[in-house]
Design a protein around this nucleic acid. Structure first.
Length: 556
RNA sequence: UGAUCCAUGGUGUAACGGUAGCACUACUGAUUUUGGUUCAGUCAGUUAAGGUUCGAAUCCUUAUGGAUCAACCA
């Protein structure tokens, strides 16, 4: 893991690495400290993965550490359940945090900071309603104005703030505000709210507090307490940087610095928590870990490997402009890794019976490589006999000349077995093809072929005698448009109705009976698959991670 | 239309005043017992107009386009 990040020296740096290297070169720091600060109110998704790779990647590359800090300052939306999910996802991605921390651990310290601000005359208790505050805030083109509460004395503010803490007021009755600049062109600087009253049960501090700090008064201070050197966040926090720095300066605390990057968007999906939640609650998907979801849990169930996700994050880089990364990049990363590690197996999705009319004897065992990309992958035994199944789409009665598969009178190789020739097509009363009678060439056996026959096509197949039915779930992109979140109308209008196709009785080769939960397979000529946790010993279920590239499908 | 941020092939990202490169995609061709993989190649880009300079994607100005900001969310 560490090697991954240190090995690549020649590569050009992204702008964050440049900042870090400049700081290191200037002797500003010996090592760096970053943090990943999720709010425990939802599941992590592919966008978070970028942030995780960025933060952990930086400290791995330059030395130092990355804290996992839960930004749990809003008790009404947060829950311990999410904490566990988030931890699992980060670990699964392959990262280790230096410390597991919570903004709520700092509530007492934060309170003290607030008192300091009040004492300095830089914060005051405001009794206005939120509507009044919004109204007094002005507009981007017009400055805001202070109200009478801003004139309260330090002593009064101190007493009132303490009373707020003691629960003497109702929710919304009062807030603590920073006294900065009501005419700043930056709306965030117009006396931002630091604390609000919420008589709510917190997942960690229980009912201990009735006031909770706002993001602006928790995040930067938490960074500072942890001596975070580089606090990396997304572009929407750019205007908050001014407050971030103002508070550090006034409080005279450790000067963490904030840097912003553009959130990375993936095409054909969404990363809005609200919309993701809607997909779940309105049953467009089966849950947060539905294999079509862009959540880490969904990607994991879909069969993506941590390596492929890290590779994706590395490849797409990081910048400051808006972007929409083609889903094909993520798919490429999956194929790239899976090709190297997936065990090759044969599964026939839509079976067509083949009888080898000139095959005598009970059958035989043939060896087939587990992975041609892995010299140490070994082989497995597959059984061959007179009756087999091939894919229905691998036969055509009237085949175009570019069709390399089976057709009347044509020859193909059965993978790891023999070359066969189609002699006779058998149909039922409706004209449906029910069986192919073929002959095989005994001297064309895989690995010892002396037949001299050259075929263009090789087919996957299973032995009728020991194959067994499995369910296959063929997943595709969840949305039909590149950017459903910004498309006209409702994003649910663009859900891909064919994003899941269930194949009930695909026939799998016997070796697949031993499939394990964390194993990845390539079903020959079909794609990459992994076992779904819904599987039972009686009914194995395989999820399609991604198809193989298919240049024939395009040519058609 | 106040402020802030951003602008390089279809997509993402480099080039740090000196040959516009890499990856994905697409397309050719070769190899192949997976129409997979691998290999070789092709197409394709500096938003515009001025300015500074021997030289500008890079610095300056203006324009244009996009994004963000007025939650007791983060």
């Amino acid at each position: 893991m560490t090697e991954d990040y240190k090995a690549e020296e020649k590569k050009s740096l992204n702008f964050l690495e440049e900042i870090v290297e400049a700081d290191l070169a200037a002797g500003k720091y010996k090592t760096i400290m970053t943090r990943f600060p999720p709010e425990p109110n939802g599941y992590l998704h592919i966008g978070h993965a970028s942030s995780i790779c960025l933060n952990f990647g930086l400290s791995l590359k330059y030395g130092g550490g990355t804290n996992l800090r839960f930004d749990d300052t809003n008790p009404v939306t947060e829950d311990t359940e999410y904490v566990e999910g988030i931890k699992k996802d980060i670990q699964w991605l392959g990262f280790e945090w230096a410390n597991e921390l919570y903004a709520s651990d700092y509530f007492e310290q934060l309170y003290t900071y607030a008192v300091t601000l009040i004492e300095k005359g830089l914060a005051y208790v405001d009794d206005s309603t939120s509507e009044e505050i919004a109204e007094q805030k002005g507009t981007p083109t017009q400055p805001g104005r202070r109200n009478i509460y801003a004139d309260r004395t330090v002593a009064e503010n101190l007493q009132l703030f303490e009373a707020m803490r003691n629960g003497q007021y109702q929710d919304g009755e009062k807030v603590l505000r920073a006294r900065i600049d009501m005419s700043s062109p930056n709306m965030i600087m117009r006396d931002p709210i630091l604390y609000r009253i919420k008589h709510a049960h917190h997942h960690r501090t229980g009912d201990q507090w009735s006031i909770y700090p706002m993001y602006d008064f928790a995040h930067g201070q938490s960074d500072s307490i942890e001596h975070i050197t580089h606090s990396i966040c997304t572009m929407e926090f750019v205007p908050h940087r001014e407050v971030y720095n103002w508070l550090i300066e006034k409080l005279e605390i450790y000067p963490s610095r904030q840097y912003e990057f553009a959130r990375r968007n993936l095409s054909h999906t969404l990363t809005s928590k609200r919309k993701l939640l809607q997909l779940v609650t309105e049953k467009y998907v089966s849950g947060w870990d539905d294999p079509r979801m862009p959540t880490i849990a969904g990607l994991r169930r879909r069969g993506y490997t941590p390596e492929s996700i890290r590779d994706y994050c590395e490849r797409i880089g990081v910048g400051k402009r808006d972007n929409l990364i083609d889903a094909g990049v993520l798919e490429f990363c999956a194929r790239e890794h899976l090709n190297k590690i997936a065990l090759r197996r044969m599964v026939v999705f839509d079976p067509l019976k083949v009888v080898i009319t000139n095959y005598e004897g009970a059958g035989e065992w043939l060896a087939s490589e587990n992975n041609p990309e892995d010299p140490d992958g070994g082989t497995r035994n597959i059984s061959f006999s007179k009756e087999l199944f091939i894919e229905r789409e691998d036969f055509m009665e009237d085949a175009p000349k570019k069709y390399f598969r089976l057709a009347p009178g044509k020859q193909v190789r059965l993978k790891s077995a023999y070359i066969i020739q189609c002699d006779e097509v058998i149909k039922d009363a409706d004209g449906q093809i029910t069986q192919l009678n073929c002959s095989y060439f005994p001297n064309s056996k895989s690995g010892e072929d002396t037949s001299g026959i050259h075929v263009k096509g090789t087919l996957h197949w299973v032995n009728a005698r020991d194959c067994f039915p499995v369910q296959v779930r063929e997943y595709d992109r969840l949305f039909t448009v590149e950017d459903p979140g910004n498309a006209e109308g409702n994003f649910t209008d663009y859900i891909n109705e064919h994003s899941l196709k269930v194949v009930e009785n695909a026939l799998a080769e016997a070796a697949l009976k031993e499939a394990g939960v964390n194993e990845r397979f390539q079903f020959l000529r079909k794609g990459y698959f992994t076992l779904d946790p819904d599987s039972t010993p009686e009914q194995l279920i395989f999820n399609r991670t991604v198809t193989l590239k298919d240049s024939w499908a395009k040519a058609k």
